[in-house]
Computed example of a mutant assay.
Amino acid sequence: MFHNLENNSLFIADSHFNKKNQELLTLLEKIVNKELTPSQLFLMGDMIDFISGESKYFIKINKKVIDLINKISQNIEVFYLEGNHDYNLQKLFPFVKVYKREMQPIFFKYEDKTIALAHGDIFTPWHYNLYCKIIRNRPLLHFLNLIDFNNFISKKIEESLLQKNICSMISDFDLFAKKRLKNYDANIIIEGHFHQGKIFKSEKQKYVNIPSLCCSKQYMIFNGEFQGVNL
């Protein structure tokens, strides 16, 4: 199934929203307040530093962002590609088109071009795939909630994530992009996850890595071409 990619669509990736990284809140408020009026909104994964549909503590502390996304989704088309920090989300976003990792890539059409979108943590080794299944397991997550007395597990996860340095550059982006392109049968490939904010063009394909909002303070607008925009 193909969706249509529209001009003036807005792409956000890897904002890792938490106490320290507040850029996502600022950008969503600009959309709600009509300072930005995108035709479509693409949330490319890892929007929140951690959240799942089962994590009561993280749902509570991120309620403002959740409410803003839901408000936006009642007015424009919103696509949310789950990442490795945010998953099992559909019940939190009833009007958003949410795509789990196993449903990615998703495909779009723009004029005569085929476009593939994914968070980016796909086409990975078997042990990472197993890890992804374990951390998304609903019964396990519900059990962890039951034993999360005084939110001690959740707060340890929160504190650990706050200490992480997630902003680094890939030394040979062109080589990296060529390897990613081999996984896809599409004209344009759009991913987040890698925090690079760069574009690579081969003879037949284009690879677009959406910038990390928390690292570079940038998102991207699509109008036939992709352009990075400072927050």
Rank of each mutant, 00 (worst) to 15 (best):
M1A: 13
H3I: 03
L5Y: 07
L5E: 03
E6P: 01
N7L: 11
F11P: 04
F11G: 10
H16C: 08
H16A: 05
Q22C: 07
L24H: 09
L24A: 06
E29F: 07
K30C: 07
V32R: 06
V32A: 10
N33M: 08
S39A: 08
F42R: 01
L43W: 00
M44V: 04
M47D: 07
M47E: 12
I48M: 10
D49A: 11
I51Q: 04
S52G: 09
G53A: 05
S55C: 09
K56L: 14
K60Y: 10
N62W: 04
K63L: 10
K64V: 09
K64S: 12
V65I: 15
V65E: 04
I69N: 00
N70M: 06
Q74L: 12
Q74G: 12
Y80N: 04
L81G: 00
L81M: 11
G83W: 06
N84F: 04
L89N: 02
L89V: 02
Q90I: 10
P94W: 09
P94R: 12
R101T: 09
P105S: 07
F108S: 05
K109C: 11
E111L: 12
I115H: 02
I115E: 03
A118G: 07
A118F: 02
G120H: 02
D121C: 08
P125W: 02
H127S: 07
C132Q: 15
C132N: 13
K133H: 13
I134T: 11
R136M: 08
P139L: 11
H142D: 13
D148H: 05
F149G: 01
S154W: 03
S154H: 04
E159V: 00
S160P: 00
L162T: 00
L162G: 00
Q163V: 02
I166T: 12
I166L: 13
C167H: 03
S168C: 02
D172V: 04
F173V: 10
F173Y: 13
A177K: 03
K179F: 08
K179S: 12
K182L: 14
N183H: 15
N183K: 05
N183P: 03
Y184L: 03
D185H: 13
D185I: 10
A186D: 11
N187G: 15
I188Y: 01
E191Y: 00
H193A: 06
F194E: 01
F194P: 00
F194C: 01
G197P: 08
K198E: 11
K198M: 14
S202C: 08
S202K: 10
Q205C: 13
N209L: 03
N209D: 14
P211E: 06
K217Q: 12
M220F: 03
M220T: 09
F222Y: 11
N223E: 14
E225Y: 10
N230Q: 09
